[in-house]
Amino acid sequence: MKGTKESQRIYKMVMCGVLTALAMIFSYIESVIRIPLPIPGIKLGVPNIAIITVLYVVGTKEAITVNFIRISLTALLFGNINSFLFSMAGAILSMLTMIILKKINFFSTVGVSVAGGVMHNFGQIIAAAFIMGSSAILYYLPVLIITGTVTGAIIGAVAALVAERVKRQAEKNL
């Protein structure tokens, strides 16, 4: 990325704003889509397209911020305290995993997204088991890891395309 310091700063700020909005819309769309499997906490993970784009195009700190704002605002608008707690537990674990895997540069976006999806489900179900005081919930884990893997792979592939295009545009304009 070229351009002056000031224009880069503005670019980052605008990108974060736009992608936060996008992530929130994705969260809403996701909450409307009904997945035919009756598994608690099952999700497509569409907002992760925006989060991965921030992570790859803007930066780590910004990705954490955008994700945190996204979760807080969507819980406030469409969710409740329960959904907030569960998504937060999932998001912290998933963000950490994705940041570490991106840093060590071992996987492509797809691998990073798969690990993120799996860890999101993992964190969420463990939080649910704790809050609800029921270890039986953990038996849903294998199915959730499989769905997290499949959706994570698809989301990762889409996010790679989005991130690449956004980066190209940025290089053209800055």
Binding site: G111, V114, A115, L141, P142, I145, I146, T149, G156
Partner: peptide, 24 residues
């Protein structure tokens, strides 16, 4: 190389979870 690693990760996740699922 990275894509190959991705594929390995995906397969491992699915195989291990499927195994755990059947054991349960």
């Amino acid at each position: 190389k990275k894509i190959k690693r991705d594929a390995v990760l995906v397969l491992l996740c699915i195989i291990i979870s499927a195994a755990v699922y059947f054991i349960i």
